[in-house]
Design a protein around this nucleic acid. Structure first.
Length: 317
DNA sequence: ATGGTTTTTACTGCGTC
DNA sequence: GACGCGGTAAAAACCAT
């Protein structure tokens, strides 16, 4: 047990030096100093988060600058309904010096806490937002997407709320489609099916709401590139690195010819992985790729035949 | 609402282990 | 016989008009 943990940590620290993702094995680690995270752009694996910054917040060269730059308070976050800005009253019945208090002070503090919470979430809009953001948080965790996606989803939801797009639609529906949009926007796509699996509303509503919100907020996203699914599917299928790179090559080459337009990206990615398996002489059953991509063997067959024809390479015999 | 395209469902035949 | 693969037809889903 201890051994496996140690290995895992070693693996991660090694990745920190090379910039290589230990999960999907691509050189796509990006560092986001604002969020204090290192994330793989391909598969969304978070390698490290919230490191402690031991240095000064900013460099200041004289007293004046120091005064201007210093500040207090927690960093802002979009994923709390008040951006983490309001006062929170500690639940411990201790004073600033850590001493316990008298009984009537206890009661006073309790009442303060209750009212603070009431004020914090005083109107319907804020309760609405609070609920939506907790839903986004829950689903994002279930999908295993990194914090930046959560923040983006929160921003989208706020915009939708501001423009009064929620009216007549369910909070869950809008929250879910915000998350779906955020995943695509951040280049860590999750299929509508995958999002639906962790959502409390059905796929039709998510799709419908997504289109509506994206349209109203002028969010114009390119159709998802199938190659973005490859690393994740490959690691789920446990295929060799060769197959993965070949699959990406197939996708790049065939999409350049425009073969992918109008086709479902997940099915397309699945087919490319299967085709890559043939070319690398590594057996990857159609059934397996279809299942992980949440599509059918028929779709895999149709796509992969087109792809192989397009790149004009038949499987090695 | 309608028509065109894609995906899914369901069924079948073939070869291999 | 189970399994993987291929093909097909019809139904369902999707999208633009």
């Amino acid at each position: 047990m201890t051994q496996s943990i140690t290995n895992h940590v070693e693996q991660e620290s090694q990745a920190a030096e090379t910039g290589r993702c230990p999960d999907c094995e691509t050189d796509t680690i990006v560092h986001d100093p604002d969020r204090g995270e290192r994330v793989c752009r391909e598969c969304g694996l978070v390698l490290s988060e919230d490191p402690i910054d031991y240095g000064p917040e900013w460099r200041a060269f004289n007293a004046q600058e120091h005064k201007e730059l210093s500040r207090v308070g927690a960093p802002l976050t979009q994923s709390m309904h008040d951006r983490g800005l309001t006062t929170t009253i500690d639940w411990r019945n201790r004073d600033a010096n850590g001493h316990s208090m008298s009984a009537d002070k206890h009661g006073q503090l309790h009442r303060l806490r209750v009212w603070q919470e009431r004020i914090r979430t005083k109107n319907a809009g804020e309760r609405n937002l609070k609920y939506a953001l907790s839903e986004i948080d829950r689903m994002a965790s279930a999908l295993g997407v990194p914090t930046p996606v959560k923040e983006t989803a929160s921003v989208i939801y706020r915009q939708a709320l501001e423009q009064d797009l929620i009216r007549g639609r369910s909070i869950e529906g809008v929250a879910t489609s915000a998350l779906y949009t955020a995943c695509r926007k951040e280049g860590i796509p999750r299929s509508l099916e995958e999002v639906t699996a962790v959502a409390r509303v059905d796929q039709r509503e998510i799709g419908r709401t997504y289109r509506y919100v994206a349209d109203e907020l002028d969010i114009n996203l390119e159709p998802t590139n199938p190659r973005q699914f490859v690393p994740r599917f490959c690691s789920e299928l446990d295929v060799s690195k060769d197959v993965e790179t070949t699959a990406v090559e197939i996708i790049d080459e065939t999409t350049r010819q425009g073969l992918h337009s109008g086709k479902s990206p997940t099915g397309y990615a699945a087919a490319a992985i299967y085709a890559a398996g043939l070319l690398c002489e590594e057996t990857v059953p159609q059934r397996a790729v279809a299942e992980t991509a949440q599509t059918t063997v028929v779709t895999v067959r149709n796509r992969y035949r087109e792809q192989l024809e397009a790149i004009d390479r038949s499987p090695a015999t």
